[in-house]
Computed example of a mutant assay.
Amino acid sequence: MLSIGEFSKICKVSTKTLRYYDEIGLITPDEINTENGYRYYSIRQLKKMLIINRLKSYHFSLEEIKAVLDLEEDQSEEGLYSALIRKKKEIQERLNAFEYTLNQISNDIVNVKNGIPIMAHLDHLEVQLVETQPLNLLYIRQMMSIDDYAAGYGKYFNRLYEKIASEKLTLLGTPMTIYHSQEYNPAGNDTEFAIPIAECIKGTRDLPGCLCAKSVLKGPYTELTSVYAKLREWAENEGYQLVKSPYEVYVTDPYQAMVSEDHITEVYFPVKKQQA
Rank of each mutant, 00 (worst) to 15 (best):
L211S: 10
P220E: 11
S215M: 10
R205L: 02
K214L: 12
K214V: 09
K218I: 14
K202S: 12
T222R: 15
R205G: 04
V216C: 12
A229W: 05
E192D: 02
R232S: 11
E223R: 11
K214Q: 14
L224I: 14
V243Q: 09
T204P: 00
L211I: 11
L207T: 00
K202L: 12
L207W: 00
Q241F: 11
W234K: 01
P196G: 03
A198D: 11
Y228S: 09
L217T: 04
T191Y: 02
Y228F: 15
A235L: 12
V216K: 08
V216M: 13
D206G: 03
A194E: 02
V243R: 09
E238D: 11
I201V: 13
Y221K: 11
A235P: 04
A198E: 14
L224Y: 10
Y228K: 10
L231I: 08
S215E: 07
K202M: 10
A213C: 12
R205Q: 08
E236C: 05
Y228V: 07
V216G: 02
N237S: 13
A213P: 04
C200V: 13
A198Y: 13
K230W: 08
Y240H: 09
E236R: 08
L211E: 11
G203P: 07
E238H: 15
L231Q: 05
A198Q: 14
S226I: 02
T191K: 02
T191A: 04
E199C: 02
T204R: 00
E238S: 14
G239T: 14
Y228D: 12
E199H: 04
Y228E: 12
Y221Q: 14
E223W: 08
E238A: 13
L217H: 04
E233F: 15
T191V: 13
C200N: 13
T225W: 10
S226F: 14
A198P: 04
L231H: 07
L207E: 02
G219F: 05
E192I: 00
C212L: 02
L231A: 05
A194W: 01
S215T: 13
L242R: 05
L211F: 10
V227I: 15
C212K: 00
P208E: 15
E233M: 14
I195A: 01
L217K: 03
R205F: 01
R205N: 03
V243Y: 12
V243P: 07
Q241L: 14
G203R: 04
E233P: 05
Y240E: 05
A229S: 12
L242M: 14
P196W: 00
L224R: 05
Q241V: 14
G203M: 07
N237P: 04
